[in-house]
Nucleic acid binder design. Structure first.
Lengths: 209, 209
DNA sequence: GCTCGACAGTAGACACTGTCTACGGTGACT
DNA sequence: AGTCACCGTAGACAGTGTCTACTGTCGAGC
C-alpha cells in the first residue's frame, strides 16, 4: 500500500504527472483512473465531470506558476527588473511544462462547457498576475520618467501581457525559430531572453543601459 | 440533387460551415460526413485521417485570412498604416470567426500527430504573412527615422507579431475585457482599436500624430 | 451486539468517436 | 462482354465520457 493519500488528491497528482510526461492528449478520464489504480467510475465521486478533473489539474498548474513568480521576483529590485523576471518566469514555465501550459489555456477543456454554471473561476487565477503587472507598469513609469504618453497604464499592461503570452505561444510551437531562420544557434535560450528584453523595452521605452 | 460538387470539396465546405456555426468541438469526422449526406467511411477516401480533413478546413481559413489581408491593405499607404491594417484584419478575423481561428492554431488537431510525416506544411501558411511584416517593419524604420535601436528588424517583427497574436487570443476568451474592468463601454470595437494602436506604437515608436 | 445508513469504489451498459476492412455497384475502356 | 479502377456503404473494433445499479466497509444509535 502506497496510497494513504485520499483519492481525490491522488487523481490530480496522477493527472499532473501525466500531462507533464505525455501531454494533454493523454489526459483521458479512464487513463487517469487506470494510472491511479482505480476503476473508471471512481473519479466521478469527486469530480462530476471530466472537465472538472482537468480543471483541478490546471489549477495546480496555476499554483505552480504563481510559486515561480514569487521566487523569481525580487521585491526590492526595480519594477522593470521585476517585470523582466516575471516575463522570463512565464516563458520559462511554458518551456519546461508545455503540456501543462497548454492545458491551462485550453478553455474548452476546463469547466462548464455550457454557458451555465458559476463563473469560469479559472480565469480569475490569472487576474492577480495581471494586477501585479499593472502595478509594476505604473511604478515603472513614474520612477523612470519615460514619456507616459497618453495611453493609460492598464492598456500598456494588457499590451505587455498579451505580448509575453503571444511570444510564449509562438515560441512553444516553433513558429519563432522557424521565422527567425533557426540559424542553428548554440543556445536558443539567449534568443528568447533577447526577445523578452526587446518586448519589455518596446512597451516601457528603451532601458537605461 | 444539389451535389454536383465533388465530395472532397463538399466535405471541406461542410466543415467550414460547421466550425463557423458550431465551433471546433463539433468537427467530428462522422458529424461532417453526416451533414455532407454520406456514410462515415466516405471521407477516408479523400482524407486518410481525421486530422487531414481538419487540416484542409484550416487551410481554407488561412486562405480566407490571406484574402482579408489583401483587401485590407492599401499598397500605396505608409508602411505603418499597412501594419495597422494588417493587425486590425487579423484581430477582426479572429473576432468574427472564433471557431475557425481556434482551429487554425490548434496544432494538435492538424496534420501528423507523430513527429514523422512531411513538414507541418500548415505552419508555412503563416510564413508569408511574417515575411510581409518584416518587410513593413524595416520600411517603417527607414522611412520614419525612429531610432532603429540595436535590435534587428526581424526581432521587432516577431515581437510585434507575437503581440498581435497574443492580443487576439486574450481578447478572444474575454480576459482583456475582464482585466480592463469591462466598463460596460458603449462600443468595445474602439477599445480594441485603441489597443492595436498602442501595440504598434510600442514596437515602432510613437506615431507622428 | 445488532441494525441501519452514509460513503467509496466496482462493474456494466449506453451512445458515441476514429480507424480499419470487406463488400457492392457504377461507369469507362479494351 | 469482360475487366478493372474507383467511389461509397456497412459493419466491426477498440476506446471514450457519462450514467446507474450494485457491493463492500465502517461508524453511530438504539
Amino acid at each position: 500500500m502506497e496510497s494513504e493519500e485520499p483519492l481525490r488528491d491522488r487523481l490530480v497528482d496522477v493527472g499532473v504527472e501525466l500531462v507533464l510526461t505525455e501531454g494533454v492528449a493523454s489526459l483521458g478520464l479512464r487513463e487517469i483512473a487506470r494510472r491511479a489504480g482505480v476503476s473508471h467510475g471512481a473519479p466521478r465521486r469527486y469530480f462530476p465531470t471530466h472537465q472538472a478533473l482537468l480543471s483541478a489539474i490546471a489549477r495546480r498548474g496555476f499554483a505552480d506558476l504563481a510559486g515561480r513568480f514569487a521566487e523569481a521576483v525580487d521585491e526590492a529590485a526595480s519594477p522593470r527588473t521585476q517585470l523582466r523576471a516575471l516575463a522570463s518566469a512565464y516563458v520559462r514555465y511554458a518551456q519546461e511544462r508545455p503540456g501543462m501550459f497548454e492545458l491551462m489555456f485550453r478553455h474548452d477543456l476546463l469547466r462548464g462547457q455550457a454557458r451555465a454554471a458559476g463563473r469560469p473561476q479559472l480565469r480569475e487565477a490569472t487576474l492577480p498576475l495581471f494586477g501585479r503587472i499593472v502595478e509594476l507598469v505604473t511604478r515603472c513609469r513614474e520612477q523612470e520618467d519615460q514619456g507616459p504618453q497618453d495611453v493609460p497604464a492598464a492598456v500598456t499592461a494588457v499590451a505587455l501581457w498579451a505580448n509575453v503570452h503571444g511570444l510564449t505561444q509562438l515560441w512553444g510551437w516553433g513558429s519563432i525559430g522557424l521565422a527567425l531562420g533557426e540559424d542553428d544557434s548554440p543556445r536558443t535560450g539567449n534568443r528568447l531572453d533577447q526577445l523578452i528584453d526587446a518586448v519589455i523595452d518596446a512597451h516601457l521605452g528603451a532601458a537605461d543601459a
